[in-house]
């Protein structure tokens, strides 16, 4: 690990200023940052530790909205009975991520910005990685092993997968991200926070240098209460998703009034399956329509040799998540 300077600002203004300097990186829980520094993928000159900004730690479940400070710990939010009642999928997504130790340390702001687990990104012995070293190529696409790679949203430059769970609930339920940067504060729709890799996979978000995520908010909608996060993984805990789905449903009698579907383990960014939602809205929800929604969710997928299994798997996970919610609601 390269030597680095460390600063722990006391105010958001100081943090923004420090984080805007060349070679500076923000650190909060450190579960991604320290890891990547140890394996030589990141080598910041200065770490700006924002955990001293106590104002960003809280969260609140209101009648109209859910609000989460960027420094709220994963475990604390996951365990809050008010969160569990208002938005079960969000609690489940946090619970099913990482390990207890990591959830105790990691913050929500850091969680949404976590980096890919693509092995070619994480091992600097591979000369080719457009995300780590722009223009160097992509080892995964150059005959590499692609079974943990994106089948949605990838490009010819990069097929790295967004690994998180929590973000799928945010993207599907219209979350917004509050930030503070050198130019002041702004609100970014969560769906616009992450950038598709395209030709510039090293640019992962719309955040400007020095811009700090301060909070995440979600409008409270009826589909939240009937939501579920289903994660398929090769071991029962502490494993990234082979495929996952965050879904929520609002029924009007036997008709779907509102439905939300976020996909994990399959895409380059947090992914919302809008076409699948549209197909369900206004119709019945049953095994047949759930499976059709799953199929539609992956219509535009571009499977690679190693990741072809994610298409049928992802479709089944979407169907399974929808039917679980349906059975919780009751009815037919």
């Amino acid at each position: 690990m390269k030597n680095f300077a460390y600063t722990r600002p006391r105010s958001l203004g100081d943090a923004t200023e420090a984080a805007g300097n060349d070679g500076a990186q923000i650190i909060a829980g450190g579960t991604t940052m320290v890891d990547l520094m140890k394996i030589g993928v990141l080598a910041p000159e200065t770490l700006v530790d924002i955990t001293g900004l106590g104002d960003l730690e809280g969260h609140a479940v209101g009648t109209d909205a859910l609000q989460f400070g960027a420094l709220a710990r994963m475990s604390k939010v996951a365990d809050d009975p008010a969160v569990i009642e208002a938005f079960p999928a969000l609690s489940e997504a946090l619970w099913k991520a990482a390990s207890p130790q990591l959830r105790n340390a990691a913050t929500l702001g850091g969680n949404i910005l976590q980096r890919t687990r693509c092995p070619y990104f994480r091992d600097t012995a591979y000369a080719q990685c457009n995300k780590r070293d722009p223009g160097s190529g992509c080892a995964a696409l150059d005959g590499g092993k692609t079974s943990h790679h994106a089948i949605l949203g990838g490009s010819e430059a990069c097929v790295a997968m967004y690994p998180g769970d929590f973000a799928q609930t945010l993207v599907a339920f219209d979350a917004q991200v509050m930030t503070r940067g050198p130019g002041g504060t702004r609100t970014i729709p969560f769906a616009e926070l992450h950038l598709l890799p395209g030709d510039t996979p090293h640019v992962e978000t719309v955040l400007e240098p020095g811009e700090i995520v301060t909070a995440i908010t979600l409008p409270r909608i009826p589909a939240m209460a009937n939501s579920h996060y289903l994660k398929a993984r090769d071991r029962e805990s502490y494993a990234f998703a082979a495929a996952s789905a965050a879904v929520g449903v609002e029924m009007d009698g036997d008709t779907v009034r509102d439905v939300r579907i976020g996909l994990g383990g399959v895409a380059a960014t947090p992914w919302r399956a809008r076409a699948a939602e549209d197909a369900l809205r206004g119709g019945p929800l049953n095994e047949e329509t759930a499976r059709e929604a799953g199929r539609i969710a992956f219509e535009e997928a571009v499977p690679l040799e190693g990741s072809a299994y994610k298409m049928p798997l992802g479709a089944d996970v979407v169907a399974g998540a929808l039917l679980t919610v349906k059975s919780r609601i009751g009815g037919e």
């Binding site: 092995p119 070619y120 092993k145």
Partner: peptide, 24 residues
């Protein structure tokens, strides 16, 4: 796991080299 073209092991860490956890 193996990267065939470059003949290198891919998951040389115990996050991605899976072994059973208590829950399994």
């Amino acid at each position: 796991e193996v990267d065939t073209p470059r003949a290198r092991f891919l998951n040389a860490n115990i996050a991605e080299y899976l072994i059973p956890v208590n829950a399994d």
